[in-house]
Simulated assay, not measured.
Amino acid sequence: MHVLIPAYEPTGSLPRLVARLRDADPTLRVLVVDDGSGPQYAEAFDRAAAAGAAIIRHPHNRGKGAALRSGLAWIRARAPLDAVVTADADGQHTPQDILAVAARVDVEGNALVLGCRAFDGDVPARSRVGNAIARGAFRVAAGWRVSDTQTGLRGIPPAMIAWLLEVPGERFDYEQWVLLRLARAGFSAVEVPIETVYLDGNASSHFRPIADSIRVMAPTIAFAASSLTGFVVDAAALFLIYAVTGALVPSVVAARVISAGITFVLNRRVVFRRRGREHLFRHLAAYAVLAALLLASNLAWMSFLTGAGLPLWLAKVVTELGLFALSYRAQKNAVFAPRTANAVRSHAARADSSPQFTSSRVSS
């Protein structure tokens, strides 16, 4: 079992955590990734190494996601059969909770084990708000609930590591992308309750509530922007065509055909990152079916609402807002979803073919 700790400009809590982990379980192997902290933080890493950790370094700061991938690649190359528990360097995860997650990952098979905080009691406002924003956005985007989307305490089975090395994201968004793509890759998640710990009002955290909340919500924001673009095009075309023809149903159909072509390109290339010709016709056919279903629903609601006395513009807004979440879920989980069976077999094959080494130390 490896404990992987990404660290950027750490305090004295890092070497204390390493020492306490090694005291609690001398068989644990601890790997610390110095994510470009600079020479002024060398003492903290030297003390962590003296306490029993292996240290690898980025020459400059690349972000938490990049540090996690570097650590996972290092562990996979040397101990491919080891499970990994990731923990933060700021002292928010107690050795007891880290060991509890480690024990759970050993019995969960292919499940990602999440150490989840309750966020009750004396919790700093920026942490409470940041997690609430991320939790709500995640539920809309993924369609399933996680009580702590920002937790850095995660237990990773060895079969999952090859896939994790391919997940995008360089900074705090990486951990969000892992959760968003987990089910499509054929894995599941379980939660383990952990203590909510904040030292000095969480002053050592490098999470920026606004900037990094926006970053972790990027998939949802991108889809919302694409939908807004489609809405503007759709609404403009609808009002223009209706003004000329005076016929509601043909106007709605024509406007939706125009806007659907634009949103297909934006969602495929930008939101869900499916580029090139691979699966293009499958995506297009599935999108056409979804567009037809949404169009039928759009027509039904528009006719009902305008017939009930709502002005055209208000009926349009109400209808589009109602269909937004449904459209996102359908596109993410069906239209643009990768074929997970092949992907999972590919990850498993790469894991099985990895060379097996046992070293747990590296020079700094």
Rank of each mutant, 00 (worst) to 15 (best):
Val216Cys: 05
Asn202Glu: 06
Phe187Pro: 13
Gly169Tyr: 06
Ser213Asp: 01
Asp212Glu: 01
Leu228Met: 06
Gly169Gln: 05
Val233Asp: 03
Leu199Glu: 13
Val232Asn: 05
Ile156Lys: 03
Ala211Asp: 11
Phe239Trp: 03
Ile221Ala: 15
Ser227Lys: 02
Glu175Asn: 15
Ile194Ser: 08
Glu175Asp: 11
Ile214Met: 13
Arg171Thr: 12
Ala203Cys: 02
Val233Gly: 08
Ala183Pro: 01
Pro209Trp: 08
Met160Lys: 11
Ala183Cys: 08
Gly230Cys: 08
Tyr174Glu: 08
Gly155Thr: 11
Ala159Ser: 13
Trp177Pro: 00
Tyr198Asp: 00
Arg154Met: 13
Gly155Val: 10
Ile156Gly: 00
Leu228Lys: 03
Trp177Leu: 12
Leu240Val: 03
Glu191Thr: 13
Ser205Thr: 15
Gly155Tyr: 01
Pro158Phe: 08
Ala235Glu: 15
Ile241Ala: 10
Arg181Gln: 06
Val190Tyr: 07
Phe172Pro: 01
Gly186Val: 13
Gly169Thr: 04
Ala189Ser: 14
Ala236Gly: 07
Ser205Arg: 12
Pro219Trp: 10
Gly186Thr: 10
Asp234Lys: 11
Leu164Pro: 09
Glu170Lys: 05
Leu153Trp: 01
Ile221Ser: 14
Pro158Cys: 07
Phe172Ala: 07
Ser226Trp: 03
Gly155Gln: 02
Ala185Asp: 06
